[in-house]
């Protein structure tokens, strides 16, 4: 990992990052519970353990930048500013959901936030991100496109086609590989002859680096540097964000492929623990601050659940809407 040490710029900076990560953790823990209560159905992929990636990256990006994410994207949507109540209503399948109940957990969209999903075909978001970046370049926009994908995606042809195209056309796209070490249950070294993901990107003449994805400051700094270079016309970049998924792949995963001790070892260096410990050690926050932020996150989740519970269902009569674009009169 070649990113230089990064750290909090002050109390407010530290609090903002901690708040963002606690919101995601509280949201995901409640989702787990709501799944057991059968309020949320379908596939549910939780982000516990990876919060530093979404929070650090989104803080380093601009509001005008386009975001393409995966099916494990609750954290990205929340960190991007998609309202939590709209996200929860989507998981409930309600009309007030951010995709009007047609997407669910894997397909969160919010065009106003330039949040383009919510893509559940592994690596299929990369070509779309390349196209968004092509539009940004041809329209001479200052914005860039950030594309999240997992380590499993690097085995797909679309990863390689997209990296080549982005580099060939020098497009303003930042590839953010969330390497949580497992593609569902298959470890990277069981599927890849070359496990150094940054090295693959360099094969396409793309600037690439590996970053400690459990350190929110490292993520924020690396994404900020890469985004600035891309905005300056340097062409695409790739960051491999090394992280770990604390919970199962989905709600149907008995986790036969990894030892509990491995999970526990990663949890001991989890992103929330390390951030909180560091902020306290540097005298930037107190235990009271932590408890206050945790309570605020919990209250926001309560409100989101209440919103989702009381939100209306889409009428069945509207089943066939949005198959084609509705032209405004």
């Amino acid at each position: 990992m070649n990113a230089p040490a990064a750290g909090p710029a002050g109390r407010e900076h530290g609090l903002a990052l901690l708040r963002g990560m606690l919101r995601i953790r509280a949201f995901e823990d409640r989702c787990y519970q709501l799944y057991g209560e059968r309020k949320i159905r379908g596939f549910l992929h939780l982000y516990n353990g990876e919060e530093a990636v979404a929070v650090g990256a989104m803080r380093a990006l601009d509001a005008g930048d386009a975001i393409v994410a995966t099916y494990r994207e609750h954290g990205h949507a929340l960190a991007r500013g998609v309202p939590m109540d709209r996200v929860m209503a989507e998981l409930y399948g309600k009309q007030s959901g951010c995709s009007r109940g047609r997407g669910g957990s894997m397909h969160l969209f919010d065009v106003a936030k330039r949040f383009y999903g919510g893509n559940a075909i592994v690596a299929a978001g990369l070509p779309v991100a390349v196209g968004l970046a092509l539009a940004q370049k041809l329209r001479r926009e200052p914005a860039i496109t950030a594309c999240f994908f997992g380590d499993g995606a690097v085995a797909e042809g679309e990863f390689h086609e997209s990296l080549n195209l982005a580099a060939l056309w020098r497009l303003p796209v930042l590839f953010l590989c969330e390497n949580n070490r497992y593609a569902m249950g298959t470890a990277l070294d069981r599927t890849e002859a070359e496990t150094d993901i940054a090295a693959k990107a360099r094969g396409y003449r793309i600037d690439a680096a590996a970053v400690d994805g459990m350190d929110v400051f490292a993520v924020e700094a690396a994404v900020g540097r890469a985004a600035a270079a891309i905005r300056g016309g340097a062409g695409p970049a790739l960051l491999e964000l090394r992280t770990y998924r604390f919970r199962a792949h989905s709600m149907f995963d008995p986790q036969l492929y990894r030892d509990k001790s491995e999970v526990e070892a990663w949890q001991r260096k989890g992103p929330l623990i390390t951030l909180t410990t560091r902020l306290k050690a540097e005298g930037l926050i107190t235990e009271d601050d932590f408890r206050r932020l945790e309570a605020e996150a919990s209250a926001e989740v309560d409100a989101a659940v209440a919103f989702a519970e009381s939100a209306p269902w889409e009428p069945v009569a509207d089943l066939a809407r949005f198959v084609y674009a509705e032209r405004s009169a």
Partner: peptide, 8 residues
């Protein structure tokens, strides 16, 4: 278009 609730 459909899975974004008509946004895209």
């Amino acid at each position: 278009c459909h899975m974004s609730g008509g946004q895209l």
